[in-house]
Design a protein around this nucleic acid. Structure first.
Length: 492
RNA sequence: GGGCCAUUAGCUCAGACGGUAGAGCACCUGACUUUUAAUCAGGGUGUCGCUGGUUCGAGUCCAGCAUGGCUCACCA
C-alpha cells in the first residue's frame, strides 16, 4: 500500500483492515477460494416446500446483519436474489460464531445450513458452517436510499449494481434484447460477421471520427463511425445476408441520447430493398419487445408506446406538409426552399441545398410529433450519400428512418450499387469536407472498386441498440443502459 | 461549446439574516438466542468540491476553476 493511500485512509476502512488482520490471525483466509454452491437464494424461495429441512450451500454478499447476543440474522444476496441467514452460537460453536460477529456488511461468504421458516414466516437458512470468500474493505451505501449520486453510480457501477437491484434488471434485459435479435436474425439465415473497428478511411455515416495511431504500421487509423462500407463489401463478396452488432465511435457531444461509443446493429440483405427493410424492422423490433417485455405496450416517460404492427408509414414531404403546411413538392429549387424555411422562422446557412433544407425543416417541425412508431421515408439525396435514388423522383432516395418518442431508432435504405453515381456522391462529400465540414465522407477508392466488381441491389438497415434498449427498459438516459458510460477521467 | 442547477460525514440529506458543523443509516463500545428499517444505552468519525476575494468573522455573499446533472446546439 502506498504512503499516500495510507494517509488518505478513513476510519471506516481502517477498522475493516484491522478485522481483516484479525481473521488472518485466527487462521482464516479472508479471500477464500472455490465454493461449491448447491443452489441459489431465489430458487430456495421459489420452491421452499422442496427445500424445507434440506441442507443447502449458498454464497453471496452479506447485505444486512441483525445481532441478538448469541444469535443473529443476516441477509445474503447472490445473483438470483437474497435470502435470510440465521446464526446461533450453540449450533456454530464459539469460533465460527466469532466469525459471524466479525462479518461486515458487504463481505462475501459461503454458508452451509438447513432451510427453515422463522416464527415470523421468513424463509431462511439455519447456518451451521460459514466460509469467508471475500472481505469487503469499503462500507456499502445506505440500505434504503441506495446509491443516488449519479456520478458515483456511473464511475463505480459495481457499487450501483450491488445496491440498486433495478439497475441489474436493466442490463439483464439489455442482454436478452441483444440475444433475441441475434436469434431472430440467425433464424432468418443471416450471417453474423465482424468487420474492422479500426479503419484507414472512416465511412458509412456523417460524423467526426476518433483518430489513433498504429506504431508498427506508422499510420493513422480511425475508430469506425459505422460498419456500413465493410458490410457492403461482403455483399460484393457473395455473403448475401449479413449483420453485425457492435460498437461504433463518434467524436461528438455527449447527451442523454449520445455516448461516444455506442452499439449499432447493421443488417444487409442482397436482392431486397428498403421496403423489405421496413417489414424486417417492424417484425424484428415488435418481436423483441414482445419477447422481452411480454407485451407490445411499453411505458416510457409517462407515455404508452404501442408496438403493435403495422406501424405508420409517412413520406417525409407528406409529414412536413402535415406539420408546417409547406409542400416541398412545389418548391423545386434551392432558393425557393431557402425562402420557405426562412418563412417558418428558421435560420439557415446560405448556400444550403434544397434537400438539406428539407431535412432541417423536418427535424425542426416534425420529429417532435413522432411519438408512436413511425416510418418516415423518401429522404433527399443531398443528405443520403449512400442510398439509391428513387426511380420516379431521383432527387429523393429509397430511404426511411424509424422514429419512436421523438428519437431516431433506425435508418435504412436501398443501397446505392452504381459505382459511377457513388463516386460522384463521394466527390460532392469531399467538396463539403474541403469547405470545412468535418463530418462529410472521405473518398473511399477501395469501396468504389468493390462496387465496380458489382454489388447486388440490397436493403440495408441500422438500428441504434442503446436507444432501443432505452425504450424497452423505460430508461430516460443512454447512460442508464450503458454499463460504463464515457465520463471525464478523474485527475489526481 | 452555450444556458440553468448541484457539490456539506462512508451513504441519503438538513443547515433563515454571515456568528465555533447537524440528522438518519453505516461505523465503534456494551446488553440481548426467531429478528427483519430489530431494539435499548453510550460515542461524531468532516479539507462544507478547489482557489482567491469581501468581512472582525464565510458552509452561507462575490469571482474564477473543477466535476456531474438537465437543456440547447450536433448526431444515432
Amino acid at each position: 500500500m502506498s504512503h499516500t493511500e495510507q494517509g488518505d485512509i478513513n476510519e471506516l476502512k481502517r477498522v475493516r483492515l484491522e478485522k481483516l488482520q484479525e481473521l488472518r490471525d485466527m487462521g482464516v483466509d479472508p479471500f477464500g477460494g472455490r465454493f461449491e454452491r448447491s443452489t441459489m437464494a431465489q430458487a430456495i424461495k421459489d420452491s421452499f416446500d422442496n427445500f424445507e429441512g434440506q441442507t443447502v450451500q449458498v454464497a453471496g454478499r452479506m447485505m444486512s446483519k441483525r445481532r441478538h447476543g448469541k444469535a443473529g440474522f443476516a441477509n445474503l444476496q447472490d445473483y438470483s436474489g437474497s435470502i435470510q441467514l440465521y446464526f446461533r452460537q450453540d449450533d456454530l460453536g464459539p469460533e465460527k460464531y466469532e466469525l459471524f460477529k466479525k462479518m461486515d456488511m458487504g463481505d462475501i461468504i459461503g454458508v452451509s445450513g438447513t432451510v427453515f421458516r422463522t416464527q415470523k414466516g421468513e424463509m431462511s437458512i439455519h447456518v451451521y458452517d460459514l466460509t469467508y470468500l471475500s472481505k469487503s474493505l469499503h462500507p456499502l451505501p445506505e440500505k434504503w436510499h441506495g446509491l443516488k449520486d449519479v456520478e458515483l453510480r456511473y464511475r463505480q457501477r459495481y457499487v450501483d449494481l450491488i445496491v440498486n437491484p433495478e439497475v441489474k434488471e436493466v442490463f439483464v434485459k439489455r442482454s436478452r434484447i441483444i440475444r433475441e435479435i441475434r436469434r431472430y436474425l440467425d433464424e432468418l439465415g443471416f450471417l453474423e460477421v465482424e468487420t474492422p473497428m479500426m479503419q484507414p478511411i472512416p465511412g458509412g455515416a456523417t460524423a467526426k471520427p476518433f483518430i489513433t495511431h498504429h506504431n508498427a504500421l506508422d499510420t493513422e487509423l480511425y475508430l469506425r463511425i459505422a460498419p456500413e462500407l465493410y458490410l457492403k463489401r461482403l455483399l460484393v463478396g457473395g455473403l448475401e445476408k449479413v449483420y453485425e452488432i457492435n460498437r461504433s465511435f463518434r467524436n461528438e457531444g455527449i447527451s442523454t441520447r449520445h455516448n461516444p461509443e455506442f452499439t449499432m446493429l447493421e443488417i444487409y440483405q442482397a436482392y431486397a430493398d428498403f421496403q423489405d427493410m421496413m417489414d424486417l424492422t417492424e417484425a424484428l423490433i415488435s418481436n423483441v419487445v414482445n419477447q422481452v417485455n411480454g407485451s407490445l405496450q411499453v411505458e416510457f416517460e409517462g407515455q404508452t408506446i404501442d408496438f403493435t404492427t403495422p406501424w405508420k408509414r409517412l413520406p417525409m414531404l407528406e409529414a412536413i406538409k402535415q406539420y408546417t403546411g409547406l409542400d416541398f413538392n412545389h418548391i423545386v429549387d434551392d432558393d425557393e426552399a431557402f425562402q420557405a424555411a426562412r418563412g417558418l422562422g428558421m435560420e439557415l446557412e446560405p448556400g444550403a441545398a434544397r434537400g438539406e433544407i428539407i431535412n432541417e425543416v423536418f427535424e425542426s417541425f416534425v420529429e417532435e410529433h413522432l411519438v408512436q412508431p413511425t416510418f418516415i421515408f423518401g429522404h433527399p439525396v443531398d443528405i443520403s450519400p449512400l442510398a439509391k435514388r428513387n426511380r420516379e423522383t431521383p432527387e429523393f432516395t429509397d430511404r426511411f428512418e424509424l422514429f419512436i418518442v421523438q428519437r431516431e431508432i433506425a435508418n435504412a435504405f436501398s443501397e446505392l450499387n452504381d459505382p459511377i453515381d457513388q463516386r460522384q456522391r463521394f466527390q460532392r462529400q469531399v467538396e463539403k469536407r474541403q469547405s470545412g465540414d468535418g463530418e462529410a465522407h472521405m473518398m473511399d477508392e477501395d469501396y468504389i472498386r468493390a462496387l465496380e466488381y458489382g454489388m447486388p441491389s440490397a436493403g440495408g438497415l441500422g438500428i441504434g441498440i442503446d436507444r432501443l434498449v432505452m425504450l424497452i427498459t423505460g430508461s430516460p438516459s443512454i447512460r442508464d443502459v450503458i454499463l460504463f458510460p464515457t465520463l471525464r477521467p478523474v485527475k489526481e
